[in-house]
Design a binder for these strands. Structure first.
Lengths: 359, 359
DNA sequence: TTGTAGGCGTTATCAG
DNA sequence: CTGATAACGCCTACAA
């Protein structure tokens, strides 16, 4: 591949001049400038990002660390980040941690040696990101944490309004007339799972409903977890008539368990998930869910990073994105209850500006 | 961050010795070796991949270029590639092309300046990969093409057996008693779409069934395309009783259109997709599909690349992965036909070794 | 305004 | 077996 020296020779100028033209680091006489540009064009020259990074102590790479790209919520996040990054000349290095904090550490340590311009991280379980990010920040590298936060995180962050989303979902169930509400949460050491539980509890408290401890089941954020915990819930007496699931994968497992138990959703049990994955629309019945935009999560995080790169030295940002409740066919009045006009009910139930639609 | 010079000082040896210890490029006296290793440990030293890459003329990065990570089929491919790459010390740079060949070109050109160890590419529409890859190969960088191939591709490739998968799916429909089969294909300039159509046609030919041209609809590989083309098919007289969709997204759109037209799947129209995405299991009715392992596609491609890196100079490899037909509830006998015992029928219908299951 | 030279952190070569 | 030293390609003072 052509290098600067060759371009210099082709344009009959010195190496430095080529660099100056390329970086606008000095004003170069127009005819000379043109000669250089022509040579660059002719040779299809592109500067070595490696050499440039080494010299500048910073590359145009952004490290993106996520639990698992095959988890259906994350691709949109990655895509959002990549779009903003790409259009600003940055590239993404993608790392999966499988929620394993030691794998995360490996990535964190290795990424450093690429001198990335910044990091966007969805922390793994028990992540030690706070410590690591400190050392990145000392080196002038920004770290933005998204979706959920590790212990003691004080840096930039972008998350969904999990508490509010869960609160709204729960209120919706309440307004359908349910009183025996259960929830299946994700791992409660994850901030997003915890916040969703908090929102659920707040709605319950406000409705002055008692929440039996066995009505709160904690599990992993996947189908299997939702399935097994739902089986437990279905054996309880009295049996809950509505379940708020910590995310859509859990809800999917719940749907399966409900069906296998010979019960029907929504006639016997109503169900609301979280994330509003694409599949929520196509399940049977279609799944109600708290919608959050993974794409926006990604773009926002990248945006913050770029602002930092451009010199924003302000205090840590903590952006919280709004959620939207999508009511589909997995929600109905509890068995035996008089049929309600849910549309008007639902509309009254929600704050102004909270979108709600029957899809 | 600590560098080699510091390690050398800490261990009271010369810079070269540190390098030798780290790369086993020369035998170093045990006590000295230990001193170096200790210093490395103590300082948490990791060699700069940038400097190393510059010097060695090759980094440990693998460029992965795909159309769009939010397309549900691709995450598994990426994950497969990342897994084998990671466990061999390589990292992935992820690039989305949006099927835009000019964006692909930008990535291809820029990636070069990172001196990647190799490239794994799912080519965009009208990709010029063949030309580009040539220049990469001249530089000693391997390029593996997966899922679909650009024009005149002669390098390493990994694809699914699209023709055979489509053939089996079509045969299944035939054996259910359908005679009016239609297909909605992806863009036929994409090899995978073309091969799937070929398989469909072969089965039709073998069954001595006439295939009216309007029974073959070409569109994009997405829900919208499937939806609109299905509406067209449903207006045909006679109306097809079975549709083979070029992929699951098309099938999803078809499902929607069928429902909206007031028809039922599978009672009025049977449907089979391709890819066997996760959502195929959860649609209503659950979607039959030709299953291909995206994960395996990714691992296989990465494996080939690593073999090349380790010196494999053999001729171009063209690996073709098997598919599996998954029959779910979207397939039944055509309306008016006597009910058949599909289980035995289905089993007899397929070649030995072809897995088939009702999920 | 243009050219020169030093150095970023490694690795590889070559004396000792 | 160990230690200097010269690249790798680029950027940036600084000198001309």
């Amino acid at each position: 591949m052509a290098n600067m020296k060759e371009i210099a020779k082709m344009a009959r100028v010195s190496l430095g001049t080529v660099s100056h033209v390329l970086n606008n680091s000095a004003v170069v006489r127009e005819p000379v400038r043109l000669r250089v540009l022509e040579a660059v064009q002719a040779a299809g020259y592109q500067p070595s990002q490696l050499a440039r990074g080494l010299r500048r102590d910073k590359t145009n790479m952004i490290g993106m660390i996520i639990p698992d790209i095959t988890n259906p919520f994350f691709p949109a996040v990655v895509r959002g980040a990549e779009d903003v990054a790409f259009s600003n000349g940055y590239r993404l290095i993608l790392c999966n941690t499988d929620n394993d904090h030691s794998k995360e550490l490996v990535h964190l340590n290795e990424l450093r040696t690429y001198l990335p311009a910044g990091l966007i991280v969805i922390p793994s379980n028990f992540s030690d990101l706070t410590t690591q990010a400190e050392s990145y920040r000392r080196a002038g590298t920004g770290v933005v944490c998204i979706d959920r936060l590790p212990k003691n995180w004080s840096g930039d962050s972008v998350t969904a309004d999990n508490e509010e989303g869960a609160y709204n979902a729960t209120r919706c169930l309440l307004q359908f007339g349910h009183t025996k509400l259960a929830t299946i949460t994700g791992p409660l050491h994850l901030t997003n799972a915890k916040e969703r539980l908090d929102g659920f509890k707040r709605a319950m408290r406000e409705a002055r409903l008692h929440l039996a401890p066995e009505y709160v089941q904690e599990t992993t954020f996947d189908k299997q977890g939702g399935y097994s915990k739902t089986l437990i819930l279905l054996r309880l007496i009295p049996r809950p008539t509505a379940i708020f699931a910590g995310n859509d994968m859990i809800a999917l497992g719940a749907l399966l368990a409900i069906r296998e138990a010979g019960l029907r959703c929504p006639e016997d049990i109503s169900l609301i998930g979280f994330d509003d994955l694409d599949l929520a629309e196509t399940t049977n019945p279609s799944l109600s869910s708290v919608s959050q935009s993974g794409y926006q999560l990604g773009t926002t995080a990248a945006r913050i990073l770029l602002d930092r790169l451009e010199g924003d030295k302000g205090p840590a940002k903590h952006l919280v994105l709004e959620t939207t409740l999508k009511i589909r066919h997995s929600v109905a009045a509890p068995p035996g209850a008089p049929r309600r006009n849910r549309a008007s009910k639902g509309r009254r139930s929600t704050k102004p500006g909270l979108a709600e639609e029957r899809a």
